[in-house]
Design a protein around this nucleic acid. Structure first.
Length: 474
RNA sequence: GGCGGGGUAGCCAAGUGGUAAGGCAGGGGUCUGCAAAACCCUUAUGCGUCGGUUCGAUUCCGACCCUCGCCUCCA
């Protein structure tokens, strides 16, 4: 039936068709991190969502070119740079590195391109010049260059299509003091910000004097450079719909680099925000978690990934520690089944690996329906139960077990949870286990249980199976 | 005020004009020396409230209540 995705631009689920005439290549841009601090769990929900989109496209056979920008110059960053006395590069480098470490913990596929704003001043300036030349921008008295929404609209160009703005009803400028800027109109946004004293050493030369890029322009410049002036998918958090993405459209289409009838972006996808412990995440409520906070609490990346992947991307999701515990149990259920499959498969010939087409179809059909991950999970867990049943009945042949494992690997190309990490028990633990076995053989169960308790206190759980006992890390 | 999401079991969360997926947690059972794991059974006569349409609505329509988000630099 083909992949169907919700498009924020049309507010409808649409069949996804790539721009590529051959239908193979897909250009995907996702707004990346502003590297001024460690990424929080809300940021990572968006990136896990983007990773799901990418992986599922690849699963469906598309060749994805994935671009994610690094915003490494921006108000908050400049403030921090001034506070810390570090150079811009030293400051942002630290958080950029941290970001990719976190991304790796969540098993996010690295984007093919990770352009930094500070390394694209040439492209940014060229784009601003082009907008000035087309009279969609102006330099104000404060030296900054702004995009003129009035001129843009006067030229018959639509503004506000993505956010569905109603200009007559909008309370423009309520949150921004209109005298703060030299803009012609409060709704105008900065393309290039003139250097201010508090910017310190953070500025670049430009035809309009020293300064730095506005917030939105980097994404337009870098996405069009790497993916072309018109590309398939642009993702981000829902808060970016306005103004960021709306302005990106205006800038990018205002530059008129697209072919006739081609939009800047064909398909806009936005991930919903997260609630944490039922409330909007905030530092004062104590429910603000960075990825690192959660790792420090003893949860691992795959547990966090699983939880973030458990709900539909367009629904706000309540992220809780209790949910993380549940994720651990659910993953344990999957791992348990996979371990048993591996045990059963033994050295069954790899040639006999046929995947389970019914499961794969159900799984893919769910995801094709606007990434209905919940339905996909239902398919996976039904399959796990069925496998467990057959395993328990001894009805699963080694060849079938091998096939099931191959099927899991196919699914896991999308889910990216990996398999169980088979921890080898150290020799002293194995000795304790053997001592317990001896006691059991002698029917000295009190002694056997004492050994089991000892093992448990060392972090190893004993499970007696028909093939003998085995140790599992707790 | 404008725009847009939500309200489904203890928790998380799918879904459909024909009688409620899946996960976690709970209860009972099978298996086990006992456990663990697994399996089986069980946990919403009900899907925010009140009306309406319909043979039939949780699903469509209307009103209302509650809740969350965006409305200029926050994923």
């Amino acid at each position: 039936m083909g992949l169907r995705l919700y498009n924020t631009l049309t507010r409808a689920v649409e069949t996804f068709t790539p721009l590529d005439p051959a239908g193979r290549q897909v250009g995907l841009y996702c707004c990346g991190p502003t590297v001024y601090d460690y990424g929080h769990i809300g940021n990572f929900r968006t990136f896990v969502f983007a990773d799901l989109v990418r992986r599922f496209l690849e699963y469906r056979g598309y060749t994805v070119r994935h671009v994610m920008n690094i915003t490494d110059v921006e108000d908050k960053i400049i403030r921090r740079v001034a506070e810390t006395g570090l150079t811009l590069a030293a400051y942002t480098g630290r958080y950029e590195t941290a970001f990719f470490e976190d991304a790796q913990a969540l098993n996010l596929l690295p984007p093919h391109h990770r352009p930094r704003a500070t390394e694209h001043m040439g492209e940014i300036i060229a784009l601003v010049e082009r907008l000035l030349a087309r009279d969609f921008a102006y330099q104000a008295a404060d030296g900054s260059v702004y995009f003129s929404i009035d001129k843009y609209r006067a030229a018959g160009r639509p503004y506000g299509c993505l956010a569905k703005l109603n200009f007559d009803e909008m309370r423009v400028g309520e949150r921004v003091k209109s005298d703060e800027y030299a803009k012609e109109s409060v709704a105008d946004f900065a393309l290039w910000k003139a250097r201010a004293p508090e910017d310190g050493a953070v500025f670049w030369p430009s035809p309009w004097g020293d300064g730095r890029p506005g917030w939105h322009i980097e994404c337009s410049a870098m996405s069009m450079k790497l993916l072309g002036p018109s590309f398939d998918l642009h993702l981000g958090g829902e808060d970016l719909i306005f103004p960021h993405h709306e302005d990106e459209i205006a800038q990018s289409e205002g530059a008129d680099l697209q072919g006739p009838g081609q939009p800047f972006v064909r398909h806009w996808l936005h991930g919903a925000h997260l609630l944490v412990e039922g409330r909007k995440m905030s530092k004062s409520l104590g429910n603000f978690y960075t990825l690192r906070d959660l790792l420090a609490k003893g949860f691992n990346g795959r547990e966090i990934r699983y939880l973030l992947l458990s709900a539909h991307y367009r629904e706000s999701f309540n992220f809780t520690i209790e949910g993380l515990q549940g994720a651990r149990s659910a993953l344990g259920r999957i791992d348990e089944c996979l371990s048993k499959l591996e045990e059963r498969a033994g050295a069954a010939p790899a040639a006999a690996t046929e995947v389970d087409p019914a499961l794969l179809e159900r799984f893919a059909a769910a995801l094709e329906d606007d990434l209905n991950i919940s339905a996909a999970w239902a398919a996976v867990f039904d399959w796990i139960r069925d496998l467990n049943r057959r395993l328990a009945e001894g009805a699963l042949t080694p060849t079938q077990a091998t096939a099931a494992l191959a099927t899991w690997r196919r699914l896991d190309a999308v889910l990216a949870l990996g398999g169980p990490t088979a921890a080898e028990a150290p020799a002293p633990m194995l000795a304790l286990l053997e001592a317990r076995q001896a006691a059991r053989r002698a029917k000295d169960f009190a002694r056997a249980d004492a050994f089991r308790l000892e093992l448990k206190s060392q972090g190893w759980l004993v499970e007696d199976t028909p093939k003998g006992p085995r140790l599992k890390r707790t």
